[in-house]
């Protein structure tokens, strides 16, 4: 990796100030950033380590699960409260990466990075979560702006994510056989804001909602309702592992399995 300065601020204000520097880079778990640095694909002036801000922790109310941005995947996966309130969310966290990644990676880091094959974006979008930052609250539908792109500003830090508790939800992930990222990951939810279906891994622009699936499920919440509902291959990824047509097919299959799992 290239040389860079390192800072570990103790307050959110100090972190925001540090991120104001040109080519500053925030680091939460570092599970994406460190490999990228090692490959010399990124040359930050300063790496701002967010682990000193006290942003981890889980709070569950009657209507929402609120997860601090620095909460690790393993914490979410093992949380009894999350398992009771939104079991699909705990299950999703338990599917991220490998054990080492789950012990280091964080929800805030995953969402700020917005890898097009990451798992959390599907949960955030399908559950209609709200992302709270050092500046504002952002609705999930406004947050994701294409692969590796969000509405976050350079000096904006995610502090927590609030997930409304759905009546039914499930996430099913068809893994890329090599990377084990989602080749097609489908999160279905029936909650306060209606039926929402979010798909990660498949789209060229990252996570997206599937209007056809949502309409079909709103009318009839069952796997059978999804049979025959088409997914266009036009905007889907195509690579050595899966063509766009195969991914389009998998969207339907995996969505049906998610609905079955949600019950």
């Amino acid at each position: 990796m290239y040389d860079f300065a390192y800072q570990k601020p103790a307050t959110l204000a100090a972190a925001v100030a540090a991120l104001g520097a040109e080519d500053a880079k925030a680091m939460s778990g570092g599970m994406t950033l460190i490999p990228v640095l090692k490959q010399r694909l990124n040359k930050p002036s300063v790496v701002v380590d967010l682990s000193g801000l006290g942003l981890s922790g889980i709070t569950v109310t009657d209507s929402a699960v609120v997860i601090g941005a620095m909460t690790t995947h393993i914490t979410v996966a093992n949380s009894g409260e999350v398992k009771r309130a939104i079991p699909a969310l705990a299950a999703l966290a338990g599917l991220i990466g490998d054990k080492e990644v789950r012990h280091r990676g964080t929800i805030g880091g995953s969402l700020a990075n917005n890898d097009p094959a990451a798992d959390y974006p599907a949960a955030v979008l399908a559950l209609g979560a709200t992302i709270t930052t050092s500046k504002r609250s952002i609705a999930a539908d406004d947050y994701f702006q294409g692969m590796f792109t969000t509405v976050l500003e350079a000096d904006e830090v995610i502090t927590s994510v609030s997930f409304p508790i759905p009546a039914k939800a499930a996430y099913v992930k068809f893994k890329n056989p090599a990377s084990r990222y989602a080749m097609v990951g489908v999160f279905v939810a029936k909650g306060p804001s209606g039926v929402r279906v979010a798909i990660t891994g498949a789209g060229q622009g990252g996570v997206f909602r599937h209007a056809g699936f949502e309409a079909a499920l709103a009318a009839n919440w069952s796997a059978d309702a999804l049979r025959g509902v088409a997914t266009s291959a036009d905007d889907l990824n195509s690579d050595i592992h899966a063509s766009a047509e195969y991914r389009a097919h998998l969207c339907g299959v995996i969505a049906q399995r998610a609905v079955k799992a949600a019950g």
């Binding site: 056989p177 990377s179 690579d239 050595i240």
Partner: peptide, 8 residues
């Protein structure tokens, strides 16, 4: 397939 991301 030049990395474990693509070589299974």
């Amino acid at each position: 397939s030049g990395s474990f991301m693509d070589y299974t």
